[in-house]
Design a protein around this nucleic acid. Structure first.
Length: 424
RNA sequence: GGAGGUGUCGCAUAGUGGCCUAGUGCGCCCGCCUGCUAAGCGGGUUGAGGUUAAUCCCUCUCGCGGGUUCAAAUCCCGCCACCUCCGCCA
């Protein structure tokens, strides 16, 4: 949800933001028209309602013929008030519906265009040169089999395509990564959380996942619950309808949760292995802060993600996502893409978005400041999405003999193991 | 799953159809008083929207949504949350 005042006062700014996303600037004008209509109906209703209330007082004290007279007119007025109220509610709903379709205003810094129009901000680390080392790297599917870490066949047998079991060291690896990520985040001042992964429509809608991403979301119609695609949903809705004291900001939460994604429209894409799956576990960072601080917090989020990838000794690049690839709620997004040897390219491991006031306006989350009550800003950032991180670690740190070197920082979390060794 | 109860301002409470413009206490804020502090005294203290240059003013907001009525915190219905008990259960 965007501040209506921005749309009223600087409509061209909003139109431009839409164009840079490759979306309709006309939506802005449609909203402004709805807003105009809404305000007209409000004025009409309030005038009648004030009149009704005034007459109501007279009725209370009137007697006999006077009272009968008043009741006649006030009865008529009552129906008018009801009609005016219905008109007002309709106009407000129409405006709200139009507003819901409007994505967050893309930041001026976000590159214009679609998925492929990202800007590379930096490269960190060197992709490993297997040719120079004299062997061909195996992909994570093969490595996972040999280590007894990933069982894709049985995942498919039990749950279908894009499911898997993590077994033995694979499962150990997940627990190690989760604990290590939680330690890093806790050290940075985050409050650790275990959040629900089943939420009501309000939480889903409020975080912006029932817009263009709705097809990617699992819905349980019998109970009208949604399975979250990220714990961002539960963390954003955590403070819904609350007013947070300014001196409690920034509030930083880090949550572990399973994530569920239908991956609609990705048929035939990344079908091999566990790169793209319907369910995975993730540790996600989430911050509530002021709009003014959100830009610096976004940089901090990114730096925490980089610290994480550095500690896993992965080579990666950071991209500034283009406006058209931001999703409904983000104003700006940075992705960290790790080098995946057998893909021969970079793949997204983490992502951090500044959603500015978009989610807090929808979820009614505000802060109490010296100069009044104002919406807050929210940011989210991946620390570790398990399957993709496992893919990157296995493929990057594999040795010629089929074993996998454990990065030093991870060793304490893996019972001190320095390598994962094939079991067959 | 069944039965019963509760939901009012930051907190605690009053309020069973019009005198509620929601009272009172606590907390908080601003004054006054006062060697200092405390006490005392006076005033203020939900949020949203409309209108406005701003103030004033107006409307909505008593868990949420409907309904009855000229008029709803108050009566009726549905939903949600919490509490107690019964049943089932990791």
């Amino acid at each position: 949800m965007i501040d209506l005042r921005i749309l009223r006062n600087q409509p061209e700014l909003a139109r431009q933001a839409q164009r840079r996303r490759g979306e309709s600037p006309e939506l802005v004008d449609e909203i402004l028209a709805q807003d105009e209509a809404r305000r007209t109906t409000i004025a009409h209703f309030e005038k009648l309602r004030a009149e009704q209330k005034a007459m109501g007082k007279e009725v209370a004290t009137a007697h006999g013929d006077d009272k009968a007279q008043l009741l006649a007119t006030t009865r008529e007025l009552s129906t008018q008030v009801k009609e005016a109220e219905v008109a007002q509610i309709r106009a407000e709903q129409a405006l709200a519906a139009a507003m819901t379709r409007l994505p967050n205003l893309a930041a001026p810094e976000a590159p214009a265009g679609g998925e492929d129009d990202y800007v590379v901000l930096e490269h960190v680390g060197e992709p490993r040169d297997f040719a120079a080392e004299g062997f061909d790297p195996l992909d994570h599917v093969e490595l996972g089999k040999r280590l007894g870490a990933i069982d894709i066949e049985r995942g498919a047998k039990v749950s279908g395509a894009r499911f898997y079991y993590l077994t033995g060291v694979g499962a150990d690896l997940e627990l190690a990564l989760v604990n290590m990520a939680m330690d890093q985040a806790r050290g940075a001042g985050f409050t650790t959380m275990i959040a629900p992964s089943l939420v009501r429509p309000r939480a889903m809608e409020g975080t912006g996942f029932l817009g263009q991403a709705a097809g990617d979301v699992y819905h349980l119609p019998a109970d009208d619950y949604y399975l979250v695609g990220t714990s961002e949903v539960a963390l954003a809705a955590y403070h819904s309808d609350e007013i947070l004291d300014a001196d409690s900001l920034p509030r930083r939460y880090v949550a572990f949760s399973p994530c569920y994604r239908r991956e609609a429209g990705s048929y035939g894409k990344d079908t091999r292995g566990i790169w793209r799956v319907h369910w995975f576990d993730k540790v996600e960072m989430f911050t509530y802060t002021t709009l003014e601080d959100s830009y610096a917090e976004h940089e901090r989020m990114l730096s925490w993600e980089k610290e994480w990838l550095d500690s896993l000794e992965l080579a990666y690049r950071v991209i500034d996502t283009a406006a058209g690839d931001l999703g409904l709620s983000a104003a700006r997004k940075f992705d960290c893409e790790a080098w995946i040897p057998t893909r021969g390219g970079y793949g997204e491991l983490t992502s951090t978005s500044n959603c500015t006031e978009f989610q807090t306006r929808r979820l009614n989350i505000r802060g109490r400041f010296a100069d009044g009550v104002k919406p807050l800003a929210t940011l989210n950032g991946t620390l570790v999405a398990i399957p993709r991180t496992i893919v990157a670690i296995l493929e990057t740190h594999q040795m010629a003999d089929g074993s996998v070197r454990v990065p030093e920082a991870l060793q304490p979390y893996l019972q001190g193991r320095t390598s994962l060794d094939p079991i067959r």
